[in-house]
Design a protein around this nucleic acid. Sequence first.
DNA 1: GTATAAATAGAAATGATTTCTATTTAATAT
DNA 2: ATATTAAATAGAAATCATTTCTATTTATAC
Lengths: 157, 157
Amino acid sequence: MPDLAICAKESDSIIMDNFPFSLRTLNLKVTPKRLAILAILMEETVYLSPEEIWGKMKRRFKRIGLPTVYRNLEELSEGNIISKVNHPNRKLYYYLCKNQSHHHHFICLSCRKVEDINFCAAKKINKEVKTKLKGKVISHILQVNGLCKTCSKKSDI
Amino acid sequence: MPDLAICAKESDSIIMDNFPFSLRTLNLKVTPKRLAILAILMEETVYLSPEEIWGKMKRRFKRIGLPTVYRNLEELSEGNIISKVNHPNRKLYYYLCKNQSHHHHFICLSCRKVEDINFCAAKKINKEVKTKLKGKVISHILQVNGLCKTCSKKSDI
DNA sequence: GTATAAATAGAAATGATTTCTATTTAATAT
DNA sequence: ATATTAAATAGAAATCATTTCTATTTATAC
Ligand SMILES: [Zn+2]
Ligand SMILES: [Zn+2]
Ligand SMILES: [Zn+2]
Ligand SMILES: [Zn+2]
């Protein structure tokens, strides 16, 4: 189905084109390095570490500091443009999800693939917190860790 | 209601009494230090950092190393006797929940209070991962971060 | 263009967590 | 009780992912 592939690429570029707007909305300047970080993440179906992103940035810029990568990833994540992965190894990983609507992720602990889980308990949870606990929700984490289809087959052997 | 208080204490000691059994089930030796860590966590309604637990341990033992605290907390958490908190500041915190059944937590980012959320999407999620993604679930995180009743009132001012 | 605040490079520091080895201890079998 | 053995521990030291710092550069608004 070449149509699907073309379609996917078009929608990708639509997302890419919107990054400057998204950045400005967050009061972040539209710098070449910010856009490059987003472009790098756009190309991936797996979550990446700051150091790995730095490695890819070094191919595009002759001067690029690791702190810049860390800072930008944190800002982009804070602004909900990218998402942070809660890895059991407690290291930082980031992922850019093309799916704009609120949802959560299944992450593969082996190959790092990320897949969408079209399920969110937010409404029920917010209700329970509000009525029963009388608290104020700031954020919620829902993440499923495991082995993707391919990796679970491998470990079957 | 003094009855409730007594009842609560009795149920606590029932849990306490079961720790040696739980530890043996996990092939962990029943050491005074393990039991003390559990006793310290039992007394708390808030999550504690390893360093804070170490501080309390130093009152009970004249020789007690911080690595011992870290190691034990990790083992107990791995064995599901205690639960790890996913704090936005990315530091380690642990909590011992008296509620034995599977559930999740609302954590206060201000006073560190932990409250139960009697809701879990595990069944739905497992089903979605199994049927749609054909993956294997290893673990899932569901945690709600916010301000508890008391703390959200304070920040209203 | 100019002004200004934000972003960045690069070096350096940080500090929570982990690793290491010698010693001690709990559990089990005499 | 005593001996045996594997697990647990103390304390010092190392690790290293992440953050901080300051001078310089750059995006943006006028
Ligand atoms: Zn995989
Ligand atoms: Zn997604
Ligand atoms: Zn609170
Ligand atoms: Zn609980």
